[in-house]
Design a protein around this nucleic acid. Sequence first.
DNA 1: GCTAGTTTCAAACAAACGTTTGAACTCTTC
DNA 2: GAAGAGTTCAAACGTTTGTTTGAAACTAGC
Lengths: 239, 239
Amino acid sequence: MSPTPQVKRLQPVDVSAQTTKTRILDAAEELFMEHGFEATSLRLITTAAGVNLAAANYHFGSKEELFQAVLTRRLDPMNRQRMDLLESFEAAAGGNTLSCDKILSAMFIPALKLARDKQTGGQNFLRLLGRAYADPAPFIRDFLSQQYHDMIARFRTAFAKALPHLPKDELSWRLHFVMGALSYTLAGTDVLKMIAQFQPDEADNDELLLSRLAPFLAAGLMAPATTSGTVHQMFQEAG
Amino acid sequence: MSPTPQVKRLQPVDVSAQTTKTRILDAAEELFMEHGFEATSLRLITTAAGVNLAAANYHFGSKEELFQAVLTRRLDPMNRQRMDLLESFEAAAGGNTLSCDKILSAMFIPALKLARDKQTGGQNFLRLLGRAYADPAPFIRDFLSQQYHDMIARFRTAFAKALPHLPKDELSWRLHFVMGALSYTLAGTDVLKMIAQFQPDEADNDELLLSRLAPFLAAGLMAPATTSGTVHQMFQEAG
DNA sequence: GCTAGTTTCAAACAAACGTTTGAACTCTTC
DNA sequence: GAAGAGTTCAAACGTTTGTTTGAAACTAGC
């Protein structure tokens, strides 16, 4: 049924096929980023890629699988880098527990690397990732939560050591806020205008962005635990 | 061209027409929330509302206008409440400057009120709003940034007084982070699972959520200003 | 240079989309 | 109860969607 060409081959993979595949991936990355999953048609993608319409289905099976392929191509290596970096930080620290900032930097630096590497088109990808994180489509949410699962678990235990005073559920919440702020910020289009206002140098947009975001999130993570009923109390006063 | 029935009438508006209109709005609110703008068809909406397909175009003109109508119905009053509340806080404080927490509570409390009011279906709306904030469609982004403009400007000056040490551009960034974290958190579907894990009482989901988020964001806002090159430095170490 | 496997291509598929139409219906107003 | 504005309805409009098809083109291996 599906035209997946899975054949054992001892020779290097056919080159022309690869370029068609990557051309589709590149075009899809940019267009999905710009318009979202639903609003981007395969005709738009294949036309932009300069390939035949049927090539998308031939190489990827379906539109959903193409979208997932676009994500995995960069997300997988990035999350692996994040975990490796965290591990190397822990090794370097010996028995000492890592600071919040250090752990956060292990999350941010691989993203930054991607954003800087113009050759891999990482700028587009980070924004696409932020958008995908907010997309309601179940197949996207399931795919992402599966992709992020190991990394989140790994960082949760690291943060738990750095913030021993914090109840576990409180930490879960704050990690969620961190991921949210990161995703949302990277996804914002308006951010570009905002950046242009202060820093005309486009090259370091994402670096500037993350250098602002990191201290903000670190302070939030290190805040004292929520006293129950804080907001409830405020609500009563002002209701 | 447009079938807008704008006629001066001295009698109370036709009741059956209103119920059709609100039935569409209610169904659209829920379905847009669940599937997003593009993935929700007018046929799905009108079927769920139990009205004829053409009724949507008759009462709202187009799908885009329907979406905007869904948003304005609740967003407009909420943002007005936010500004009124901030003003009353400032009046109560006399000449004294408000604390960060107090200003934040002026942003959160109207959202909380909406979330609690089950009669108006506010739960759905807050999630829809979070989703809309991350939607790439230009007409949605333009509409929202216009809707939020006054409120953001008002709160920016309030925060500027509360945080005099913070450079203006740094404050702009942090306000952006606050709005992002708020939107993203409210939009999350996974949040529901997370909440269910700790707090089975569904009634106060959003209250619990905001009572966790508020201290996190307050701490972030009050963090010392970014020292230039922080992340850059980290990046060099770990690169 | 023939063969077999892989990739490209133009064309067509059925289904779903937002929107429009004109007739039927409901209601108030005189 | 006739008139007329406002609303509902079934049906159809022309597009666009993701996907499939079968033949043509291409690329090795022998």
